[in-house]
């Protein structure tokens, strides 16, 4: 049985700047990393592999250099890496992305039964949290989002029980295979690759599936298959506020000053 971990290579957003003239991301010199949420999805897949002996395949849709990130997944113990890359996939929004990923999972499921698809809750560049649910919807899988703990996996009964972290409470839910779960960062601490594994991963095969392989209708993928188009990207302008009570050390006075100001600005009602 197979676990499919979906990962995305993203620009290191702490280092991203937006060109104020063109309104696009300045990508030059910005390093790419594995989407932090996805590192937890991958780790959870590997833990299930260690515990239950399932195989782990990682898939990622992106430009050819995504191979670097897929190799990182191989270095920590993924069994197989598939890169979904084609010019026709480019410019995709979450709808078109989930299409390609779902079709890839269908492709994998033809060879081996897929038990779980594990995604990170969201990416740090798009921040939509839509792709995981999109995949599940397209495939008709159960979807368990916002998972912060996997309680149990029953291979005989083909069931998974997890805990979802919601605002203010937890929910324990159970689903039958195949299921898609999206995970939070709290779920685990990702492992660090050993050097022998890194060296092996350096020239381990990464399978490329382009549209010649996948044969998807061009109207459903890439920019054509996207329901949203980006009109403009911009950084909100920041103006410096007012400095209150500089040099005052008495916390009581500082609080009084602050409360007075908030009331004055109609931000606090007494």
């Amino acid at each position: 049985m197979l676990i499919v971990a979906c990962i995305k290579q993203v620009p290191d957003t702490t280092q991203v700047k937006i060109d104020p003239v063109t309104g696009t991301l300045i990508r030059e010199g910005v390093p790419f990393i594995m989407n932090p949420f996805d590192t937890h999805a991958l780790e959870e897949s590997l833990r299930l592999k260690d515990k239950y002996g399932l195989r782990v395949a990682v898939i990622s849709m992106g430009p050819p250099n995504t191979e670097v990130t897929l190799r990182k997944a191989l270095a920590v113990g993924a069994d197989e890496a598939i890169l979904l890359s084609d010019r026709a996939f480019g410019g995709a929004d979450t709808l078109a992305t989930s299409k390609v990923l779902a079709e890839a999972i269908v492709g994998l499921a033809q060879k081996e039964e897929v038990a779980l698809v594990i995604c990170g809750k969201q990416t740090i560049d798009g921040d939509t949290a839509q792709v995981g649910p999109g995949i599940a919807t397209r495939l008709g899988y159960s979807q368990l989002t916002l998972v912060d703990h996997i309680d149990s996996l029953d291979l005989n009964a083909r069931k998974i029980r997890c805990r979802r972290k919601l605002e203010g409470w937890h929910e324990v839910v159970e689903a039958s295979f195949p299921a898609m779960i999206s995970v939070l960062r709290e779920i685990n601490h990702p492992r660090y690759p050993t050097v022998p594994m890194r060296l092996i991963a350096q020239d381990a095969p990464v399978t490329l599936w382009d549209n010649n392989v996948m044969q998807l209708d061009k109207a459903t993928i890439g920019l054509n298959g996207s329901a949203t188009q980006v009109r403009r990207i911009f950084s909100p302008e920041r103006t410096q506020g007012e400095i209150l009570g500089e040099g005052i050390n008495d916390p009581g006075k500082v609080a009084q000053l602050l409360i007075g100001k908030l009331v004055e600005k109609d931000l606090l009602f007494i």
């Binding site: 290191d12 280092q15 601490h189 492992r191 660090y192």
Partner: peptide, 22 residues
């Protein structure tokens, strides 16, 4: 411990990753 087993105090994980990434 680090290179063959990736076994080290937990605090070092983010340290190693920060070093490698940034």
């Amino acid at each position: 411990l680090v290179e063959m087993r990736a076994k080290f105090p937990e605090e070092l994980l983010s340290f190693f990753e920060n070093m490698e990434q940034r």
